[in-house]
Amino acid sequence: MYEFIAFYIFAISTTILFMITVMSKNVLYAMTSLAAGMVMISGFFFILGADFLGVVQLIVYVGAVMALYSFAMMFFDATKDIKEKHNNPTLVFLLGGLMALVFVIIFSAPIIGENIEASYPIVNGVGNAQAVGIVLFTKYLVPFEVAAIMLLVAMIAGIILAGKKMDISLTKTVIQKEPEDEILKESK
């Protein structure tokens, strides 16, 4: 019963919040609603027994990602409304609605693959964080490390892209050489 109530509260709130995110003209509103929506989503994770995931969702998304977005928003001077020219809004709603319809039809159909065996079953009596930790550091160790490298790369890339004059090499002084070829010289 609690699950029922919780699900519908979270479902309705996420839907509304995300609709605001998508439709709002104001960046601040959109971002705030996005952050709120993500908090609500972490609620789903708690309902589903994925405590650790819910925590990560809160920390990474609401904490880190949204912080990044807010910094970016400040950079872009987003207090004023965004002017967007919509060529054919009906098409957008049509496509989106169609997508939603297809998903609803697909997912409301009965699930056929009933007898799928879990490869990493959730062990009873062990906390979720513990179980996730065991699987993540045994079976998913390599993807985990790859993800770590990816995050590192992304971090460096973000620094270089956003930092001032970070695209100029610090170690090598670049000297523009004149072409030695005569033809190239002439063509210059």
Binding site: F18, A72, A78, M99, A100, F103, F107
Partner: peptide, 21 residues
């Protein structure tokens, strides 16, 4: 279904948004 609906909302946003942020 909820996931699908939310996805569709996001999808709609991708289609109609002109501002990159």
């Amino acid at each position: 279904i909820l996931s699908g609906l939310l996805f569709s909302i996001g999808f709609m946003g991708v289609l109609r948004r002109k501002n990159l942020l």
